[in-house]
């Protein structure tokens, strides 16, 4: 398994696929990066092939490692979220104190 996983010749993902994943990941990657990441990506997928042989069809899916139940609390505001959020915003260089919004480039293009 390890040899296959480490064989850079075994690419199992196409250029289109890696570009699609980069788009979904919101990462603007240049051609060199795409090539490098494609190779690494392929090798990682080869590593995952070891899981294919394992039959877990009858296993119930579980998303937590601990079964400890957590106590519930009353639905009351415990923290002053507004002040906290304001403090967070105030430390951001992109927060516009006049408008109370974060500045980003215009979404609607102007001439």
């Amino acid at each position: 398994m390890q040899d296959d996983a480490n064989n850079p010749e075994k690419k199992v993902i196409s250029d289109e696929e890696i570009k699609k994943i980069a788009q979904l990941s919101m990462l603007n990657l240049n051609q060199d990066e795409l090539e490098m990441l494609k190779t690494d990506f392929g090798n990682t997928l080869k590593l995952f092939e070891t899981l294919e042989k394992k039959d877990v069809d009858s296993v119930e899916v579980s998303y937590e490692s601990s079964k400890i139940s957590q106590p519930r609390r009353n639905d009351e505001v415990l923290h002053d979220n507004k002040t906290q959020k304001q403090q967070n915003a105030d430390t951001s260089p992109y927060f516009n104190k006049k408008t109370g919004y974060f500045d980003v480039p215009p979404v609607i293009e102007t001439e």
């Binding site: 919101m26 990462l27 990657l29 990066e33 990506f41 990682t44 980003v104 480039p105 979404v107």
Partner: peptide, 27 residues
């Protein structure tokens, strides 16, 4: 534009290993 703000900030801000794991996870 706004999309380039997201994509370029992330591409310039993250290192290779972080990008690798984001791509694998997204896939």
């Amino acid at each position: 534009n706004l999309e380039s703000l997201y994509k370029d900030s992330r591409a310039e801000g993250f290192g290779d290993e972080v990008k690798r794991r984001i791509l694998i996870g997204t896939y």
